[in-house]
């Protein structure tokens, strides 16, 4: 079986990313997931080119119009083009949640690895703190923050990153505990390596895959959370186009212009499904089972 294990062996970061993407694309569901994410990103980036209208343009001559040749998905209560708003609607959500996810993985991962590695009292105190924070209903907490300091990317990114980093701390700690018990960590200790070296060079490369999968999963939860915030009026300020906000605006006229709510809902739902498919495929490619922990 030597030939089999050679194929799956790691070959540097650049190759690793390539291999992971190829592995994901090899399964139909993984390919679908990747395509969905790529399409959403492309649409968000190219929105000014793709959108037929300015998303904030009020057209008083076509208020609550149905689908037509000039407005493919109709217009909303203020006469704005639904298609254009849907195309633009993912931009802020993606631009906020993506850096937040990276930040969450960074702090959650490092803290989790440190806790798992150092162990003892530091680990105990840290984990109880995480438990305490996890008990806070984050949505209410955010509402409090929003009402004190207002909303915006500068506040949302760190707050989302904080709350969604908490479970990552736990996952990273659990994965680290498995690895700390291995003899190559003992070997590094006996050799006299410094603690930071052990964390960076011995532990992190072995926890990286798990963090990647967990981070991607958290990203999809963050997207949902961001849209919920917008829906509640704490995310994006009108008239900026955003899916959560659009659903919120359109919910009063659901029977009259269903497309105005359905279009952003569908866009969001497809993106979440896409991320989930991709994460599943990524986990399989990297040999990580999210339910039963890291594979052998």
């Amino acid at each position: 079986m030597a030939a089999l294990s050679q194929e799956s062996a790691p070959r540097g970061a650049f190759h690793a990313v390539g291999a992971a993407l190829r592995g994901m694309a090899a399964s139909p569901s993984g390919l679908a997931g990747l395509t969905i994410i790529a399409l959403h990103l492309a649409v968000a980036v190219a929105a000014p080119v793709l959108a037929p209208y300015d998303p904030t343009l009020l057209d008083s001559s076509a208020i609550m119009a149905g689908a037509s040749g000039s407005h493919w998905l109709g217009t909303d209560a203020l006469g704005r083009d639904v298609l254009s708003r849907t195309i633009y609607g993912g931009r802020i959500a993606l631009a906020t949640t993506f850096p937040a996810a990276l930040l969450a993985v960074a702090w959650g991962g490092l803290l989790g690895i440190a806790a798992g590695f150092l162990g003892g009292r530091i680990d105990q105190i840290l984990m109880r703190l995480i438990d305490a924070f996890l008990a806070i209903p984050w949505l209410l907490f955010l509402l409090v923050i929003a009402s004190i300091v207002g909303t915006g990317g500068g506040i949302l990114v760190p707050t989302l990153a904080f709350f969604y980093g908490l479970p990552i701390v736990r996952v990273a700690r659990g994965a680290t505990l498995d690895i700390v018990a291995m003899d190559f960590v003992s070997a590094a200790r006996a050799r006299g390596e410094k603690k930071h070296w052990i964390v960076w060079r011995e532990l992190l490369p072995n926890v990286r895959d798990i963090l990647l999968v967990e981070g991607a999963m958290e990203w999809s939860w963050m997207l949902l959370a961001f849209s919920s915030l917008s829906f509640l009026g704490f995310g994006v300020t009108p008239p900026t186009p955003d899916w959560g906000l659009m659903i919120s605006d359109a919910r009063l006229y659901l029977t009259v212009i269903p497309l105005a709510a359905l279009a952003p809902m569908t866009a969001l739902a497809i993106l979440i499904v896409g991320i989930n498919l991709a994460v599943d495929a990524l986990g399989k490619t990297l040999g990580i089972d999210r339910i039963r922990g890291a594979g052998p």
Binding site: P10, M182, D183, F184, S186, A187, A190, R191, R201, E202, P205, N206, R208
Partner: peptide, 15 residues
């Protein structure tokens, strides 16, 4: 210096 029992365990698979 120590040499361990199981080389699967004593060499970092990522190095």
């Amino acid at each position: 210096q120590i040499i361990f029992q199981n080389p699967d365990d004593s060499l970092n698979p990522r190095q």
